[in-house]
């Protein structure tokens, strides 16, 4: 139910900023694992099997630092090894931008957008749209708080 509403937000974001991929990951209700729960524009279902490694790659780092992060021209100019960026590898992304998703003020998830071809990197206008979508997801989360989370 809730993931369906979030999926709609992701679909809209994909159309709105004209990017190739949108993914949403969130921490399990019990335990430390963070998984990709929703994707739009995905080219395979690898994301469903990926558990985000805390503090690693773009998603893991966005959650551990509670800050947005941009990757331009992957795998050039990255922190660490290309191997630490599974979602970039799985979806063959060249650029990506990700923001944290909070629950009760704490970063527990991530909303990520990506481009595959050599298009322009994510500009401020698009970054703002991603942040807006993230807020929408956080609101959805709060309205569905009474539901069993997954």
């Amino acid at each position: 139910m809730k993931n369906k509403s979030i999926a709609r937000v992701c679909d809209e974001l994909l159309l709105h900023i004209q990017c190739d991929f949108v993914g949403y990951a969130f921490q399990d209700r019990i335990g430390p694992n963070i998984r990709w729960l929703v994707a739009a524009g995905n080219r395979n279902d690898k994301y469903k099997r990926i558990t985000v490694r805390y503090g690693k790659g773009i998603a893991g780092r966005v959650i551990s630092t509670d800050r947005p992060m941009m990757i331009a021209d992957f795998p050039n100019n990255i922190l660490g090894k290309a191997l630490e960026y599974p979602i970039m590898l799985a979806e063959n992304l060249l650029h990506s931008y990700a923001v944290p998703i909070h629950l009760n003020g704490i970063a527990k998830g991530v909303l990520l957008v990506g481009e595959r071809k050599n298009k322009r990197i994510f500009e401020e206008e698009q970054q703002k749209s991603v942040q807006k979508a993230a807020i929408k997801i956080e609101e959805l989360m709060n309205t569905h708080l009474d539901e069993d989370r997954w």
Partner: peptide, 8 residues
């Protein structure tokens, strides 16, 4: 490996 990269 599978849980990190999603490769079966």
């Amino acid at each position: 490996y599978t849980s990190t990269y999603g490769i079966l």
